[in-house]
């Protein structure tokens, strides 16, 4: 990481830490909640980007991890323990195992077939969650208690939840950065760019994809835990295909395979949806759709791609001015 990057990272982190202090004075506490949603989706898109952006395996089924994480945590918090840690761990393990099984079945195929197989698995969960009365059926599980973090510290307040999600996002980002800079990360990119050649260089690419699928699933599961506890509510909507779709759109919008891009994409999409839906109660989904279509048409590299283009243009201008 360059000095400049470290500076930007720290500045963003400091801003996010200070941000909630302005609520009630400068803006409504609703925005603390909204940013918390960005953090939660951010964790999921980071996992998605490792699989889709780096290894090139686009999943249209990430809702299966979001929902599974949410349901495992909600059931345990309601029925077994009020503490956060065991449900969180159980959800992560459950999603890791789920990803292992689905990954094992899915990695034989590529491209559009992989997209649809992951979609089919996620649909299976969506339908099951809707019909299983044991986990609340169509209505879902209401009254998920706010988990206890430490003795005397729970996540009842909006602030607590905000910082807790931020912590997970920061850790998730750090881990993802380490992974993409590792020898393993190098293989992921090799698979995306030319899988056959990567195999002939001595790498078991199916195994590598299974591993990153598991990691990606755990990211999604943790995001699901946070979403269910943040909402105090867990419903089949966590498994809804629109969740899987949003993850893809956020990543494309921000810039696949950059980690930062999908995070920016998540923030832009959540804020944009909020603003546009409050301005145009009926037409907002159509407007959002048009915006995304334009973005994909004109900025295939996403928002991060635009920033990079501006940077190279500026650099070119500087060197031109100097000469």
């Amino acid at each position: 990481m360059t000095k400049r990057q470290a500076l930007i990272h720290s500045a963003v982190l400091i801003f996010l830490v200070v941000f909630p202090l302005g609520s009630d004075h400068l803006f409504s506490v609703f925005y603390v909640s909204l940013v918390t949603r960005v953090f939660i989706y951010g964790i999921m898109v980071l996992g998605f980007d490792l699989l889709g952006g780096y290894a090139g395996m686009i999943s249209y089924g990430h809702a299966m991890f979001f929902g599974t994480g949410g349901y495992v945590a909600a059931m345990l918090l309601k029925n077994v323990t009020g503490w956060l840690w065991f449900p969180l761990l159980a959800a992560a393990v459950a999603c890791g195992l789920l990803a292992y099984v689905v990954g094992w079945l899915s990695v034989r195929i590529r491209h559009i077939y992989f997209v649809f197989l992951t979609f089919a698995f996620a649909q299976f969960f969506f339908v099951t969650a809707n019909t299983w009365e044991f986990i609340g059926g169509e209505t879902g599980l209401a009254g998920v208690p706010k988990p206890i973090l430490l003795p005397g510290v729970d996540l009842a307040g909006k602030m607590g939840f905000y910082y807790f999600s931020l912590l997970f996002l920061a850790l998730g980002y750090l881990l993802a950065r380490i992974i993409v800079g590792s020898p393993f990360g190098r293989i992921l990119v090799g698979i995306r760019e030319n899988e056959e050649r990567t195999q002939f260089l001595g790498y078991d690419t199916n195994r590598v994809i299974r591993k990153i699928f598991v990691i990606s699933g755990v990211y999604g599961g943790i995001a699901g835990v946070l979403m269910a506890t943040h909402n105090s509510f867990c419903s089949p909507m966590l498994y809804h295909p629109s969740v899987s779709g949003e993850v893809i759109i956020m990543s494309l919008l921000g810039g696949l395979g950059t980690l930062v891009g999908p995070l920016i994409g998540a923030a832009v999409m959540i804020f944009l949806s909020d603003t546009i839906s409050s301005l145009f109660a009926n037409a907002w989904l159509g407007i959002m759709g048009a915006i995304f279509a334009l973005c994909v048409l004109y900025t295939p590299q996403g928002l991060v791609g635009i920033l990079q283009k501006l940077k190279t243009r500026k650099a070119a201008k500087v060197s031109h001015d100097a000469a």
């Binding site: 590792s182 393993f184 190098r186």
Partner: peptide, 29 residues
């Protein structure tokens, strides 16, 4: 070859295959 990767990255992915840390997650490539 890996057309979009740099020359160095092309050789690096190949060279890494005999390393003990060839598929390590946590070390720096």
């Amino acid at each position: 070859i890996f057309a979009r990767l740099t020359v160095w990255e092309n050789i690096a992915l190949a060279a890494q295959t005999v390393s003990k840390k060839r598929t390590s997650f946590l070390s720096r490539a």
